[in-house]
Design a protein around this nucleic acid. Structure first.
Lengths: 345, 345
DNA sequence: GTTAGCACTCTAAACATCAGAGTGCTAATT
DNA sequence: AATTAGCACTCTGATGTTTAGAGTGCTAAC
């Protein structure tokens, strides 16, 4: 798309003003705001041209212009000057995130909250998952006579634990049997291989011990499943209610956001931006109708170099891309760093 | 408050009809719906009496009547016939909750979701907490050369774990020092006593080992803190948007719900209902302005006989008390049961 | 104690009016 | 050729007006 310098300047100004005020932008306002050495009439001509190119829209004949989806897209791709977070802000975010370190879920929760607060949008994050992960280690921690905690450690650095109650006492002998079983059948295998089905076949060969082992093994399978299944955390939904554009149909969007799968699909199906930059999906570009009045910005965080999960935010199409994109990017970076700390190098 | 039988019948009918439709109830509608052997005029007289007693209100001169706060209260306390869940529904809830067993947080999350879905209200739950709990057991699980998981078990049955990374290798010797420290200083002490301050005084007497021990001990303190701090889980906020009464000011309420402390205050300050029945706080009875257009139903669940946390729901004053109270009650019961399973008797 | 009848009140919807903001076009200007 | 002043035109949103309908309270009769 060919635009003259002046058109670019105008488009940027219109987008930025509309983002700031939420009101359609008229020619006069624009001249006043920009202090341009041209008259409103000239600006009107240019605006008509931008409208013809599909970059602007008119809500109705006699209102100012509003950026179209394509308009935002052009702005994001070519015009916007990103506003990075200040060093102070960065340090604050760092500190808040570090205090949650040690528990990956809490890190993500904190990150989502911070993101929501920072951006006044809804923030989502997915728990780390790595389909290629294998079981690296399993531990059985006695808690009580009939209670033990099963701990699973995957090659991707995830650590999950869960309490299991058995019907009989957990003896040293039993623990040994358990470790042997795990060593022989699961260690080094993909987490996806630790299934209840597999356990049932094992149980057959165990004879009388099967009854004792099953609860422990089932717990193990449940844990393996949770390392596989990405969970989604959502924060700051209520932020959306503050925007005019959601006054009517907030329910639809918020209801949509409750379900993890569709969002996850958007995350995985959007072609990655090259160098770790966040992806931006604007309005109608969204595959789901419920999102078509919204924009999303999201990026993958990497644990120990492997892309593991996603951090994203959802807000009105009229969001402050120039500020929010760098904010999201910074948070994905430090979330990755903090979570990598848990991983044995 | 003295009401004739007919007045009671009418009040109940008005409350139930208003709950069902959300429209003010008029005399004619009422006669039609109830098939009463009296004329609308008679009903009007009775309604005027109920209004004089403060049990009904008129939105404006010529509209039907709407129950007042006192009206709902009278209904809940004296008139309502509770609708218990069907055995089938109960079994389904049971099953869904059991699958989450083993991880108390997940149990509560599931319970809140189920409650929200069941009631079309917002559902909250607080994680178990017991101020009188003492540290019963601490375990150190090696995860990698420099990584270990610290596990804390309290007398109230809570089990929390967290990964800790140290600056040096974790040797058998170090583990022994750690266990000794824990035995001597923390075991049997209230969880509140495990503070960073205490750890700092300990560190002084440790000499060169202090540097190695500190990360482990700090993690221990963080864990102890999480057993103390009640967390709050909120689900189904978006359900509220479906109600007319929240069309305007949903933001205010949802923003209020994000903060755990005030809600927790309501939970703890409301005088308990006697025999484990849920408490009901209706409209203006709420201490917080933000809740005064809403009602809450909540109850405590008990782990191994001790009241530990709260399950609650928040919705419009015009909620279906007769159905929701038993639903909430049932859920608190089974949440207690499921969570008690983790506790060694 | 109950009820028919009726005047009265208030709301919500439908309709009309009008100022204001912004446009597009034309013709004049640089 | 680009810019601009001028102007007629359009559409919205705020405001006012009207009207049908629902529901009430009161009175007088049953």
């Amino acid at each position: 798309m060919e635009l003259s310098e002046r058109q670019k300047k105008l488009l940027a100004a219109i987008v930025e003003r509309y983002i700031a005020t939420g009101e359609p932008v008229g020619s006069k306002t624009l001249v006043d705001a920009l202090g341009m050495p041209v008259s409103p009439a000239t600006v009107r001509n240019e605006m008509a041209a931008l409208t013809a190119k599909g970059l602007l829209e008119q809500p109705h004949t006699s209102a100012g212009r509003v950026p179209s989806g394509a308009g935002y897209r052009y702005y994001v791709d070519h015009l916007m000057k990103q506003y990075d977070l200040s060093p102070v802000e960065k340090r604050i975010l760092d500190a808040k995130l570090r205090t949650a370190s040690g528990d990956s879920r809490q890190v993500l929760e904190t990150a989502s909250s911070l993101l929501a607060e920072l951006t006044h949008c809804a923030a989502v994050s997915t728990t780390p998952s790595d389909a290629s992960a294998v079981v690296r280690r399993v531990e059985l921690v006695p808690i009580g006579a009939r209670t033990a905690m099963v701990v699973v450690l995957t090659s991707s650095g995830l650590i999950k634990s869960r309490v299991c109650r058995t019907d009989s006492e957990i003896t040293v002998d039993m623990a040994e049997t358990f470790y042997n079983l795990v060593n022989d059948n699961f260690l080094g295998k993909p987490t996806a291989a630790v299934t209840v089905a597999k356990i049932q076949t094992l149980a057959v060969s165990l004879g009388e011990k099967a009854l004792l082992m099953t609860p422990l093994l089932v717990t193990l399978a449940q844990l393996a499943a949770t390392t596989e299944r990405t969970q989604m955390l959502l924060e700051g939904q209520s932020n959306l209610l503050g925007y005019r554009e959601y006054a009517q149909n907030a329910f639809e969007l918020m209801d949509f956001l409750r379900h993890a799968e569709p969002l996850d699909r958007v995350f995985s199906e959007t072609p990655h931006a090259p160098n770790g930059e966040p992806s931006v999906v604007i309005g109608r570009e969204n595959p789901y109708r419920e999102l078509q009045n919204s924009s999303m910005i999201f990026g993958k965080y990497a644990i120990a170099g492997h892309e593991s999960g996603t951090l994203g935010l959802i807000g009105p199409t009229r969001m402050d891309y120039a500020r929010l994109i760098p904010s999201l990017q910074y948070l994905t970076e430090i979330v990755g760093k903090v979570l990598s700390d848990n991983v044995e190098e």
